[in-house]
Design a protein around this nucleic acid. Structure first.
Length: 605
RNA sequence: GCACCCGUAGCUCAGUUGGAUAGAGCGUCUGACUACGGAUCAGAAGGCCAGGGGUUCGAAUCCUCUCGGGUGCACCA
């Protein structure tokens, strides 16, 4: 329910009435800290004191006397120089409980690119963070009414993919029954052990080269597809899905690269180097745009005529904003979620992908520089608005028990393995309970716990993956949220069985305890918008904890004699019915937030 | 060397655009009608918000310097 704006306007009107010079003052509204009087407050008197050169206490008193309270507020009080407002519990609760909280579809087109894992081996816990962050942003964006297109970039011409395919053919191991990406990954790692020996390296190198050429020509795409399908299975297990796979080779074959280079060459910073270190290369001079490089000259096209990855990244970003076109598309398959998945394909048909107004690239923070180059390139070719809407959601690395992940040193854990263990641990905890569907529940809990562990901290922070904390089933973790939702559902079910009806609800019998919960419920819209704006999904995760916590506190509340005083059942005069309405709102709000986080709400636990 | 990120309780983390007394979880200690579902709740202990200087009525938050940790700076991706 929109509550701040009316209050802000009322405060501003009162201020202007006191002194017209106050017209431009910034009015900040916040919830009052616990144990202090009032529900919402503002420190606006401080700002006015400076502006009007008068005492803030005096101004606060005068504002309190002057202000015309907006609906749902009954009282205002100056406390020190703060102005504190008191809501009327009944009308405030009705306002919060029956606010539909629906964001209008805006048509604002946003591309969220995430995952983008090299197609040469299985996903590990480092990728886990990427997938979960990206998927959560996509869910949030959709909920906010934006038209979200989720893309996954497939680097099918890179050396890593070539090495994996080479290894698979060269070492000729029979295909076992493990998942294809795991099988391939093992051969890839084995190849790297061989490559450590310089003699072996020179023996094997030509074969790898040959595969790279084949990949560039698009000849072995079906093998890459097989890896991608195996990898996508893992993402689906995590609850992530996509709209479009973008293949690197299609950027070249579709002419996007060529067109973007033409655009770039209009800029004086982009030119062919005729001589010197970069003779024969098309280069971009970045020193004016971006500091921090030892050598600010960036190669876009090598002297052998092939493009560097950054050139393709720039082309892709140009395409995302509709500066150029050239892709063709076809269906790739249907995902477990039901969403169809498309892919770029040379033999496909044109379709309406791209043309975004905003782009979010979920990429780890080691790539901050290239991401900045991509943004700067938009500016260089005359698209400053697009540059401003070009976002990099940068996240820190995932460590494994304090160590840097390294496939070659064997310091790595696959997501598939982690999911299995998470589900196993959840199942163990359930074994003592009588449940209708323990296996399904164990998955919901295990995967929820995993996702939450990747979401709870700020993206910029590096996270240390430890089994005990990542899979923690107690404390500030997903099961706490799920439990609160299940508990709320149980209360609702019991109350309905008892025949409580909304028509008997008497909101005048509700008070401070209910208002406290409702205030938390009412934060969601602001939190969701901030999480989107700041690209900070952890705000949602933290909010979910706040909401579940405030409900649990309410549920367990006792009067000074130790008697539960917030019960739904065993009350009279419509109080229980009104409380039930609050609990229903807690349940829908919590379910909403959990679905944004990609955490399922179990039927039982 | 240059550039970017991080530093808050023993540990892992929160802290809306600068606002009132810096909050959780884990761990430690003590409790809660034998339950509208105890995977919960109440309480105790635990802080020079890395350190110095500055701006401000007000700083964990902004500026600056220092220290500690991480990352980036290829005709790789």
């Amino acid at each position: 329910m929109e509550l701040r704006e009316p209050l802000r306007r009322a405060i501003l009107e009162a201020a202007v009435r006191i002194d017209p010079a106050a017209a431009n003052v910034e009015v900040i509204i916040q919830e009052t800290p616990e144990d202090l009087p009032g529900d919402y407050g503002t420190p606006v008197a401080f700002a006015l004191a400076r502006l009007l050169r008068r005492s803030p206490l005096e101004i606060a008193d005068q504002l309190a006397a002057t202000i015309q309270l907006p609906p749902r507020f009954v009282r205002v009080e100056a406390s020190k120089a703060y102005l504190n407002f008191f809501v009327d519990p009944a009308s405030f609760l009705i306002g919060v409980l029956y606010d539909p909280l629906k964001f209008e579809e805006t048509g604002h087109r946003v591309i969220v690119e995430h995952s983008s894992v090299n197609p040469n081996k299985e996903l590990h816990v480092g990728h886990l963070r990427n997938v979960v962050l990206g998927d959560t942003m996509a869910r949030l964006g959709r909920w906010l009414g934006y038209r979200i297109e989720v893309q996954n970039y497939i680097d099918d011409t890179g050396r890593q993919a070539a090495e994996a395919l080479f290894a698979a053919a060269h070492f000729g191991l029979p295909r076992d029954d493990s998942k294809y990406d795991h099988w391939l990954g093992e051969l890839y790692v084995y190849l790297h052990q061989e490559l450590a020996n310089p003699e072996r390296r020179s023996e094997l190198e030509p074969g790898i080269r040959a595969v790279m050429h084949q990949l560039e020509a698009g000849e072995r795409r079906s093998e890459i597809e097989q890896v991608v399908r195996a990898q996508l299975q893992t993402c689906a297990d995590l609850g992530a899905d996509y709209d479009l796979l973008v293949w690197e080779s299609d950027i070249v074959s579709g002419g996007l690269l060529r067109r973007s280079l033409e655009l770039l060459q209009a800029s004086p910073r982009c030119h062919f180097a005729a001589e010197g270190k970069y003779a024969g290369c098309l280069v971009l001079e970045t020193e004016q745009v971006l500091p921090g490089l030892e050598d600010p000259t960036l190669v876009l096209v090598r002297s052998d005529g092939t493009a560097t990855y950054i050139a393709k990244d720039i082309a892709l970003q140009f395409w995302k904003f509709g500066l150029l076109d050239g892709f063709r598309y076809q269906i790739f398959g249907e995902q477990p979620s039901g969403r169809p998945l498309y892919t770029t394909a040379p033999q496909g048909e044109p379709a309406g992908f791209g043309h975004a107004a905003e782009v979010i690239n979920v990429v780890d923070d080691r790539q901050s520089y290239p991401q900045a180059v991509v943004r700067a390139a938009l500016e260089l070719v005359g698209y400053p608005m697009e540059a401003a809407q070009s976002h990099h959601l940068a996240y820190g690395p995932v460590l494994l028990e304090g160590q840097t992940i390294s496939g070659r040193k064997g310091i790595t854990i696959s997501i598939d393995e982690v999911i299995e263990e998470a589900v196993r641990r959840a199942g163990e905890l359930l074994s003592s309970k009588r449940l209708a569907n323990p296996d399904h529940l164990a998955r919901q809990i295990g995967i929820g716990a995993l996702r939450f562990s990747m979401l709870r901290a700020e993206p910029a922070r590096r996270v240390d993956f430890r089994w005990d904390s990542a899979l923690s089933l107690q404390g500030d973790a997903a099961p706490y949220l799920q439990y609160a939702a299940v508990r709320a559902a149980a209360v609702i079910r019991r109350a309905e069985e008892a025949g409580l009806s909304i028509y008997n609800a008497e909101f005048l019998l509700l008070g401070e305890a209910e208002v406290t919960v409702a205030k938390v419920i009412n934060r969601l819209a602001d939190i969701a918008m901030a999480a989107w704006r700041e690209r900070a999904p952890h705000l949602l995760a933290q909010y979910a904890l706040d909401l579940a916590n405030s409900f649990n506190i309410y549920y367990n509340h006792r009067d000074p004699y130790g008697i539960p005083d917030t019960r739904v059942l065993a009350t009279v005069g419509g109080q229980g019915e009104a409380r039930l309405e609050l609990i229903k709102k807690v349940h829908t709000t919590l379910s909403e937030v959990l679905s944004l986080l990609g955490i399922e709400v179990p039927q039982e636990m």
